[in-house]
C-alpha cells in the first residue's frame, strides 16, 4: 500500500511532543500548586456558584458529592427533629429556624479529598442554640445527625457540637441553600472536613456514645479535625 516517498521524513514532532509533555507533566505536578494559587487569586472574583469555577483550573469550585442522590424537600414541608437524650424533644420548621438568632460566618470549605473552596459565606443557627432549646440531658455524650436522603449519617461529641463554629445552615454563598449543596438545611462544622457537614439535615439525636457516621464506617476519622486527621496536613480554616 502507501509507502512514503524517499523525501526525508522531517522532524520527529510526535516523539518530541510525548517527551516534552512528559517533562511538562512533572513540572506541573511539582509547581502546579503554586501556579494554581496565583490563578485562584485571579479567579477569586468568580462566585463558586458560577459553573465556570468548576471548569477553570485553579478556580476553587465545589465538587458536588452525594452518596444517595438528590432528595428534594420544600422549605414549607421541611422539619428538623431534635430527640434522644433531651428534656423536651422538639420539631423545628424552616420558619422556626429563621426566627432563631442567626450566625454569619465566612470560612473555607475543606474536603478530605483535597479540594478547598475559600471564603464561603454561611448563615444559620448555632447548633448549641438548638440543643439548648431541647435541653440536653446530663447523660448525653454525643450527637447523631440524619439526612432525609435516608442514607447519610454523621456524629459529633457534645463538646464538639457546642462549639460556636458549628451551625445548622440555611444559607450559603449568599443565597438560600440549593438542593445540590444540601438544601434547604444542612450542618456546617467549620473546623472539620466536609464530610462532617451533613447535607439535607432532618434529625438530631442525642445519645450516650458516639455512633460513627456513613464515611466513618468506611474508614474516615471520627474526629475529623482539618489538618489533624485522615493523614492530611491542610491548614486550618480561618
Amino acid at each position: 500500500m502507501a509507502v512514503i516517498s524517499n523525501k526525508s521524513l522531517g522532524k520527529p514532532v510526535t516523539r518530541r511532543a510525548v517527551l516534552g509533555f512528559g517533562v511538562l507533566g512533572i513540572l506541573g505536578i511539582a509547581f502546579g500548586s503554586a501556579i494554581s494559587d496565583k490563578l485562584s487569586g485571579l479567579f477569586s472574583k468568580l462566585s463558586p456558584n458560577n459553573p465556570l469555577s468548576n471548569i477553570l483550573p485553579g478556580a476553587n469550585g465545589f465538587e458536588i458529592y452525594t452518596v444517595s442522590g438528590f432528595p428534594t424537600e420544600s422549605t414549607s414541608a421541611y422539619k428538623l427533629s431534635v430527640g434522644g437524650l433531651v428534656n423536651n424533644p422538639v420539631t423545628l420548621s424552616y420558619d422556626d429556624l429563621l426566627k432563631l438568632k442567626a450566625t454569619h460566618m465566612t470560612k473555607d470549605f475543606q474536603c478530605v479529598t483535597g479540594w478547598r473552596v475559600p471564603n464561603v459565606k454561611w448563615t444559620g443557627v448555632r447548633l448549641k442554640d438548638i440543643l439548648d432549646i431541647a435541653g440536653v440531658k446530663n447523660s448525653a455524650r454525643a450527637v447523631l445527625f440524619r439526612s432525609f436522603d435516608g442514607v447519610y449519617t454523621e456524629s459529633l461529641t457534645i463538646n464538639q457540637a457546642m462549639r460556636a463554629d458549628v451551625i445548622v445552615a440555611y444559607s450559603m454563598l449568599g443565597t438560600s441553600l440549593t438542593e445540590e449543596h444540601g438544601g434547604p438545611v444542612r450542618l456546617y462544622v467549620a473546623p472539620m472536613y466536609g464530610y462532617k457537614s451533613i447535607k439535607w439535615l432532618s434529625a438530631i439525636e442525642l445519645s450516650s456514645t458516639v455512633v460513627p457516621g456513613y464515611w466513618e464506617n468506611l474508614g474516615y476519622a471520627v474526629n475529623a479535625w482539618i489538618g489533624r486527621s485522615n493523614g492530611r496536613s491542610d491548614p486550618p480554616v480561618d
Partner: peptide, 25 residues
Amino acid sequence: MTGIVMQSYTLLPLSFRIGATFTHK
C-alpha cells in the same frame, strides 16, 4: 501521569496532588 498522582492520597505530598489536579484540568 497527573491522573496517577491525583490518586496517590497518602503517598505524595498534598502540593503534588494539587499540582497534578491543576495540570490535569
